[in-house]
Design a protein around this nucleic acid. Structure first.
Length: 558
RNA sequence: UGGGACGUGGCCAAGUUGGUUAAGGCACGGGGUUUUGAUCCCCGCAUUCGCAGGUUCGAGUCCUGCCGUCCCAGCCA
């Protein structure tokens, strides 16, 4: 239920694909995931990845990874590498790796074809003139004075654009469609612009670069894509997508289908904003565990499976929606609950002395790695006369229904003994410094005396054996559900100042020393944590909190 | 009367060409098990599908009108 066994939910795209296969329109489907290599992938891209790769896999088709690298000003090989890594990490392998830039020559030839048929022309207006003659949403645009150049002149000019004879912005190639169209995309859209800059893959080979609309559909056609899935904002571009393919000798005509992006609350998802958070150092890089990027989620401890399951359960539709962060958190909890070995860690330690425990002695207890899965084995947990417990697990004057330790009260130490509190030692400020308890030797886990009913069970770590660790407590990046809702205020004002709390003196049971970077655990009664892949060392383990456990006690006290 | 789309319980979302009682998940409420106040297991949770009319023996599914929300005026993708 919390793995890839989750049944596929029916959605309108799957229905279209299914129908196309049953009707024989296609006997094999081909999809593509087409990121622009100008930033890192985020959880929203994961939806598209899961959809494109998932649906092709389900129907025995193939999916290409294609970089939409038509704007050399913004793109880089570094981003491309990071994207490939993230796609693979998510668990998908592409059929072929392609680039829009692989098709630059073909795209150019098709443009010449368009010009030759009088369907495109070189416009020499400047950007400002083009903008003002485009009209408005309610008024038609006006034709460019260059719209009726001869085919020969257009051909000549376009070739010279390609050859680098003109400066950036001097001319642009436009499709000749309809300046009065109610659809702004059809008002003679630009298809080539001059950019005398080096491209990360084609170098200085080109002085002109195709626009998205021109490059995308043709790339789809070249690759034999059957279903070109994209987000809702491209709905208005579909008539243009189709117009282009109808006006070139394309070998196939893919169907563009739009679906709603996936949004999450308490975060932002635009590449521009994520880049700002990184560049202005509101976070520590693209892979900061608070970021909704794939890299951030990975470092936070999210598994690829949990992300896949999350999107599978969220479904795909055309209705714009914002999914609560709690749903994503629930996905990783389910995965971790199933697969995370259990350990004990004390985040806010207070010392307990077992006064009837022999001085200088200790013992090794065996504790199951998972309460419901004996096959996951066990680990050794040392216990001595002094242990750390959570400060919050003791109260001198507790409220009703407090099941933990109190003066005179009994509590079970997880995997160990039942103890009873006899004395409380305080420091000069009245803060609890030490709690004195007696333990019941007959109540050790596994012994008959352990079956005694005790209201509460708390976790603990031996003072003599515990390992000091740095623990990073991550919380939501923003303190409001929709940081963009308030148009008067900048979204940065809603950054949660408590999104990261660092605890330097937490204590973890020694089994943590065997942990590898990236490995995850449940710290019982606390939450799910993973070993930070970069900062952690055996001398000073660093653990990131992925997500806390559900806490109905805390909820009750809210 | 610019154009394009969307509107099913708190949040997602399924609803085959109109046909008996509107899936499922999350959240929420109640109960049980439990050496994690975790997990797990039961039970409950829309007489109603943005609103108003209409067609029909029968409509969330068809028609008309209205309301609300989102997208489009980059030589970005």
């Amino acid at each position: 239920m919390n793995n890839d066994q989750t049944p596929n939910v029916s959605n309108f795209i799957r229905n279209i694909v299914k129908r196309d296969i049953e009707s024989g329109k296609h006997d094999k489907i081909v999809t593509r995931f087409p990121p622009e290599p100008n930033g890192h992938l985020h959880i929203g891209h994961a939806k598209s990845i899961c959809l494109n790769f998932g649906i092709a896999a389900e129907f025995g088709g193939a999916t290409n990874l294609r970089f939409d690298d038509t704007n050399p000003l913004k793109e880089s090989e570094d981003f491309a590498r990071a994207i490939m890594h993230d796609v693979r990490w998510l668990g998908f392998e592409w059929n072929e790796l392609r680039h829009a830039s692989d098709y630059f020559q073909q795209l150019y030839e098709y443009a010449v074809h368009l010009i030759s048929n009088g369907k495109a022309y070189v416009d020499s207006q400047d950007a400002e003139a083009m903008r003002s003659s485009r009209g408005t949403l309610k008024e038609a645009g006006t034709n460019s004075p260059f719209r009726d150049r001869t085919v020969e002149e257009n051909l000549d000019l376009f070739e010279r654009m390609k050859n680098g004879e003109f400066a950036d912005g001097k001319h642009v190639l436009r499709a000749r469609i309809d300046m009065a169209s109610p659809n702004m995309n059809l008002r003679d859209p630009a298809i080539y612009r001059i950019r005398k800059v080096s491209h990360h893959r084609t170098g200085g080979q080109w002085n002109i670069y195709p626009m998205y609309d021109w490059a995308h559909g043709i790339s789809d056609a070249i690759e034999g894509i059957t279903h070109s899935l994209c987000t809702l904002e491209f709905e208005d571009h579909r008539p243009l997508y189709d117009w282009f393919l109808e006006n070139i000798p394309a070998q196939c005509h893919p169907q563009q289908i739009e679906f709603a992006r996936g949004n999450l609350d308490f975060t932002v998802m635009s590449k521009r904003k994520l880049r700002q958070l990184v560049e202005e150092e509101y976070v520590n890089g693209w892979d900061d565990p608070r970021m909704p990027t794939i890299a951030g989620l990975r470092r936070r401890g999210y598994t690829a499976r949990s992300i896949r399951t999350f999107w599978k359960e969220a479904g795909v539709s055309k209705a714009e929606s914002i999914i609560p962060m709690g749903v994503l958190e629930n996905a990783i909890r389910n995965d971790m609950n199933e697969n995370a070995p259990r350990l004990m860690a004390v985040l806010d330690p207070v010392k307990v002395v077992l006064t009837n425990y022999p001085e200088g002695e200790s013992e090794i207890l065996e504790a199951a790695s998972h309460p419901q899965k004996p096959e996951m084995g066990s680990r050794s947990v040392p216990l001595g006369r002094e242990i750390w417990i959570e400060r919050g697990d003791f109260m001198e004057d507790p409220p009703r229904k407090f099941f933990r330790l109190r003066p005179g009260g009994e509590v079970r130490l997880r995997n160990a003994f039942i103890i009873q509190c006899n004395d409380v030692i305080k420091d000069s400020e009245g803060k609890v410094a030490e709690i004195h308890c007696e333990y019941d030797p007959d109540s050790r886990s596994g012994l008959p005396g352990a079956s005694r009913k005790v209201k509460g069970t708390i976790h603990w770590v031996s003072v003599a054996h515990g390992v000091r660790a740095e623990i990073r407590l991550y919380d939501r990046l923003f303190n409001t559900a929709n940081p963009l809702a308030d148009k008067q205020r900048d979204y940065l004002e809603f950054l949660n100042p408590e999104s990261l709390k660092i605890i330097m003196d937490a204590v973890v049971e020694p089994a943590v020393n065997d942990a590898q970077p990236g490995e995850f655990f449940q710290f019982e009664r606390v939450g799910y944590f993973c070993v930070d892949p970069y900062s952690s060392s055996s001398a000073q383990p660093v653990l990131n909190r992925t997500v806390s456990l559900r806490d109905s006690w805390a909820k009750l006290n809210r």
